[in-house]
Design a protein around this nucleic acid. Structure first.
Length: 486
RNA sequence: GGGGCUGUGGGGUAGCCUGGUAGCCUAUGAGGUUUGGGGCUUCAUGACCGCGGUUCGAAUCCGCGCAGCCCCA
């Protein structure tokens, strides 16, 4: 039980989204600013969600043969420089270690912005024959990218936590299967645990990962009309294998370069989830990710205190599998406690007072409907049995609400004028493009900063024949979502 | 990359223009009274971002630094 208490939020989600988000994060005790600019403290309430995220996804990874490992935090300069596009992509935001004490290092060390360079150095030693493949290694770690845009807790931090998976195959076909399996794991996690719908798709050449052949991503929609990228998957083809000399002897005795993939989900997703689900009373988290699914608030009057408290403790015990919090503090009024636990996002509140005792029931309030007139009664004898379906109901409501937000944000644009209008309306638009980098620059310029998000994977659904690129008016090659992005 | 604004107890603010006692709300600790949607009350704790300058005297004026926010590219 926390000892700290907090005031509620002072601005609304609709009125001032960024101020609301900042207050939500600090007042619900999810994160705090640290003395290092751009680096936050992940407080227990947020970190436990990350732990759950890790454990769910980790289990799925292991089912398809991905093993965990750990590689050094530091990367020698010469290793990082091996793949030219890769190093170009990251150079501006790499933090360097140049000294040990007062001694200057012979070769400066990068703090990993991602671990391709250090991992593939080992991979090239380990992989000799087709019998060594596939190799599927993951690490749950931290990386540092010294961005200069202003940092936002979870959404843009200079140090963040993630999984970085790096798989190696002997052929492109296996890589394709790999992509489908991994994207499914991410998508299922977002949908079933985070209660978040997302748009899977392929990035344009301009927006793809530095060094990759192709990048696949899940795009989500924040309540302020900005798209944000969720987990991603990179098809590296043979690019890194060539740069880091990862080759093997195939069955016929020929030397071949390996095919590789990298994939990640980061702590940014926590921020996306907090932002999408929460309301003006504070944090809302899906029950499946909430550690304490229930809070019990006893209503204590002098005369009935003992009886009420005794029953409350019985209930606490019987609901142990939901990790209930029993808020017995006597120096706070029930109203205070209601507000506080709403701010902190406990999915279900159980009130028990003398009136409830008489009826052998408790008063229930769902976090998704905090209004006083939405409370209802449940018999104490039915409570344990009914809680799971109540929790499912909340999980479901959250998903549906998020789906509505996403669906209502989507539109289509055939011309640049339509696109400009869509962007002004804070929407993302599916538009036909030719795929040239210059056209993306035109789009960015004319829309005041919108960029391509990703192209739906099922392109057949959107006939491209006869359509023209909305930037250059030449033949379009595919449809892609365009919007302002975080 | 360019421009603007702001740093006051743990959080939010007043005071700054016009230099002289740092006020309020909240939180925290102890007590009393209360308790079905942020109750009342007593006492206590706790702050001028850093460095330098001007001055008898600086939160206040000036310079530099650091940090944060906003707008534009």
């Amino acid at each position: 039980m926390t000892k700290e208490t907090q005031e509620g939020l002072t601005v609304t989600k609709e009125g001032d989204f960024s101020e609301w988000y900042q207050e939500l994060i600090t007042k619900a005790e999810l994160a705090d600013y640290s003395s290092v600019s751009g680096c936050i403290v992940f407080r227990p309430r947020a970190y436990q969600i990350w732990e759950k995220t890790k454990s769910v996804i980790d289990k799925e990874f292991k089912k398809i043969g991905i093993q965990n490992s750990y590689f050094p935090l530091f990367i020698p300069k010469k290793l990082l420089a091996k793949e030219s596009k890769h190093v170009e992509g990251f150079t501006p935001e790499v933090a360097w270690v140049t000294h040990a004490g007062s001694t200057k290092l012979n070769e400066k060390l990068a703090v990993r912005p991602t671990s391709e360079a250090i991992m593939y150095d080992s991979y090239s030693k380990w992989i000799r024959s087709h019998n060594d493949l596939p190799l599927k290694l993951n690490q749950w770690n931290n990386v540092v990218r010294w961005e200069f845009k202003h940092p936002v807790p979870f959404l843009r931090t200079r140090e963040f936590l993630w999984n970085e998976g790096h798989n190696v195959y002997s052929n492109a076909k296996d890589l394709e299967k790999d992509r489908k399996a991994i994207m499914k794991i991410y998508q299922n996690f977002m949908k079933n645990y985070m209660a978040l719908p997302s748009l899977p798709g392929k990035k344009s050449d301009k927006e793809k990962f530095a060094g990759a052949e192709a990048t696949y991503s899940f795009e989500l929609m924040l309540p302020n009309g900005k798209a944000i990228q969720g987990p991603d998957y990179h098809d590296d083809g043979q690019n890194f294998a060539q740069a880091y000399d990862i080759n093997f002897l195939d069955k016929k005795g020929n030397t071949q370069f390996a095919y590789q993939s990298t994939y990640a989900i980061t702590t940014r997703m926590l921020g996306v989830m907090f932002a999408i689900h929460s309301d003006n009373s504070g944090l809302i988290i899906p029950p499946k990710l909430a550690k304490n699914k229930v809070v019990i608030v006893p209503i204590l009057f002098d005369k009935t205190k003992k009886k009420v408290l005794k029953k409350a403790k019985e209930i606490e015990k019987s609901l142990a599998r939901f990790s209930p919090i029993l808020d017995e503090r006597e120096d706070y009024t029930p109203g205070w406690k209601f507000n506080e636990w709403e701010l902190k996002g406990i999915p279900i509140r159980i009130e028990i007072g003398p009136k409830d005792l008489k009826n052998k029931s408790v008063t229930i309030s769902k976090r998704t409907q905090p209004e006083k007139n939405k409370k209802f009664q449940i018999k104490i004898s039915d409570l344990e049995e009914q809680l799971p379906s109540l929790l499912d109901e909340i999980q479901d409501e959250l998903y549906k609400k998020a789906k509505k937000l996403l669906d209502s944000s989507k539109t289509k644009a055939k011309t640049i004028a339509e696109l400009i209008k869509a962007i002004e309306n804070k929407k993302i638009a599916l538009a036909p493009v030719c795929g040239k980098v210059e056209c993306e620059d035109i789009i960015k310029d004319k829309t005041g900063g919108a960029k391509t998000l990703n192209a739906p994977l099922n392109q057949k659904k959107y006939a491209i024949k006869g359509k023209k690129c909305l930037a250059c008016n030449k033949k379009a090659k595919y449809h892609i979502y365009i919007g302002k992005s975080y």
